[in-house]
Design a protein around this nucleic acid. Structure first.
Lengths: 359, 359
DNA sequence: CTGAAAGCGCTTACAG
DNA sequence: CTGAAAGCGCTTACAG
């Protein structure tokens, strides 16, 4: 129980190896200018003595500063989801700022690929120590990412994955899986011969692979193991910018539902689920099972009223937090990091939501 | 975007105040031996210059070591739940050990209140800097906790809360709420006139307030808002030590269930839910809806087979992690900490479980 | 290729 | 009550 443990320090290694601590330091950090024989001897002693550098002393002495940069969508009113990752970035910064870390936070309007591209170029020019980006636009990302690779700047992808880009990590959810979770929740709440609608509420620019993968996961669930003959699945695509379309499409598909029919379900593949909840409520159809994504305030409201049955959360705040910590562990702590950092697919109800908001 | 920011250091404050940095240090740490006038002047300058001490330099210079102690149940085979908090403690230790922190981990057999008491006394005698305990036995806790209070040793409660014990924080779940979540899940999956069983699988020593609170929350859900007339609720208490009781009680209550009747549900108020799952499977009653607690391996297995529909997780690993971090933030970082740190009530299904295990 | 010395920002005896 | 000096473990020029 007693703590008589005394750390082995660089001077112990130096003494035992018959060199100065400067030389040991050069070996540890591969700074060259060491005779190969000396180098090997020192490495041997380090292993033997089980030497581990004191990270505190190290950061204090090397007045090195780390400038991280982040690029994510603006968390404005039309796009509240993106407020949370920014908070997570801040929280991480707070925990590690005494290691000399700063973060330049950059933002772009969610639909503006030119702004995205421009900001990313600006970041590349500023040559930060590490970068976190939400690669919403895959084409622009693929164009500019080589610059970071050439400069040896590690990049972490947040929320969206793009394959083969040499990013050191992806922090986010597995979208197909979250679709399966949604399917499970609807299937569990409905009986045989149910009618289920998949509603994609998308904007003009489209092309969000998230949404496609979520729908795929959802359909896979039924296709793989749950008697697809026993239910009707129908996909509806709606453009957010056209509220009249939303109105007419919903009326057409769900208008005739008899009161008391609890055997219909709706899966909205993104955070726009509150639009559907609103319509259901207006038409006294709140009993239809409804599952969607993300804890936007509007969604929370309908969840608490019971119009939305379940929300799937992506832990957006945690995404921001983990992205920065990944850079920190990679760059400062020299730790091995996981390439895929999948966050839990949290199932949120009226009853447990309190524990998922405000951190 | 540029980082021209230079930190104000203790010598800057000292110079501006016309004193030595030793004096500033005495003021900062309330070590006394400073004239009241000097003290006030220094404090004023500190505020003006917005001085914040460099925690790295501070811990390096003060060769202070912090010895934390923990006391939780053994995570043996009969009690797998408790493996996870220990892992969380370890993980936290890994992240902060370079601040000179060590943890003496103590354990006791889950049902042994004497062992608990003895270990807690041992810890008190060793006078650690801070303590994390799972106060499973409230009487013994209440007896010994004053010793820690007298010594000014901060105590964090993990998993179980006991009121009015001057613990600086509680890290765990709100048990009543988790009962409500279970109720929601069963209610959502069943139709009117359902029959629901609450099964408490307890050991001879009993008295676990968790279980009572969970049942209460479960019943409250139906009592408060969900037409209690439309369902039958029945509580069954079973002693784990008597498998024949389990067998006969279950046969008596559920034996006659017709195949295909999807309108029965069971809520098991703790991690022993796998016993019920096993019985259901043996009797071809897997279609009965089943909800329980904790990701024990046996439970995971039945969840994956679909016999258990939902498991509620207490984030046991996170409980360990957060407890240590709370001591760290309180003692080293001098941060304000939250007295109640409620962890999310995670809803786990076959589809999302992968993201909740192995951290 | 190597070592001696100064310094990172703070804390700790010690002397007065 | 206060200051000057040494030291925490590592890194960084500099001299050779």
């Amino acid at each position: 129980m007693e703590n008589n443990f005394t750390r082995v320090k660089i001077s112990d290694v130096a003494q035992k190896a018959g060199v100065s601590s400067g030389t040991v330091d050069r070996v540890i950090h591969n700074r060259g200018e060491v005779a190969i024989k000396t180098r090997e001897k020192v490495l041997k002693i380090i292993r033997e003595m089980n030497y581990e550098p004191d990270i505190l002393a190290s950061t204090l002495a090397s007045k090195k500063n780390y400038r991280f940069a982040s690029l994510i969508p603006e968390g404005d009113e039309a796009n509240l989801f993106w407020k949370s990752p920014a908070e997570g970035l801040e929280q991480a910064l707070n925990e590690i700022k005494h290691f000399g870390i700063t973060i330049d936070q950059h933002f772009f309007p969610y639909f503006d690929r030119n702004a995205f591209r421009k900001e990313l170029l600006t970041i590349a020019e500023s040559k930060p120590s590490g970068v976190v980006i939400a690669p919403v636009f895959s084409e622009q990302t693929k164009e500019i990412l080589p610059k970071f690779n050439q400069l040896g700047i590690p990049v972490v992808f947040l929320n969206t994955q793009i394959e083969n880009q040499n990013n050191i990590a992806f922090v986010g959810q597995e979208p197909g899986r979250s679709g399966m979770v949604a399917a499970k929740l609807l299937n569990y709440g409905l009986v045989q011969n149910a009618e289920i609608f998949i509603i994609n509420i998308i904007s003009q620019l489209g092309g969000n692979s998230h949404i496609l993968n979520r729908e795929k996961g959802f359909r896979d669930y039924f296709a793989l193991s749950h008697n697809p003959s026993h239910l009707k699945l129908k996909t509806i695509n709606i453009n957010v910018q056209e509220p009249e379309t939303l109105e007419s499409v919903l009326t057409q598909n769900l208008g005739g539902t008899e009161s008391g029919c609890r055997n219909k379900g709706i899966f909205v593949t993104n955070s726009k689920v509150f639009h559907i909840a609103q319509w259901l409520e207006k038409n006294n159809l709140s009993f239809i099972k409804l599952v969607g994504y993300d804890l936007l305030e509007q969604n929370q409201e309908y969840l608490k009223k019971g119009t939305i049955d379940f929300l799937i959360s992506q832990q957006p705040r945690e995404q921001g937090y983990k992205s920065i910590m990944t850079l920190f562990n990679h760059l400062l702590m020299k730790k091995q990091i996981n390439k895929d950092q999948f966050l839990p697919i949290d199932i949120i109800t009226k009853e447990n939501i309190d524990f998922y908001i405000n951190h």
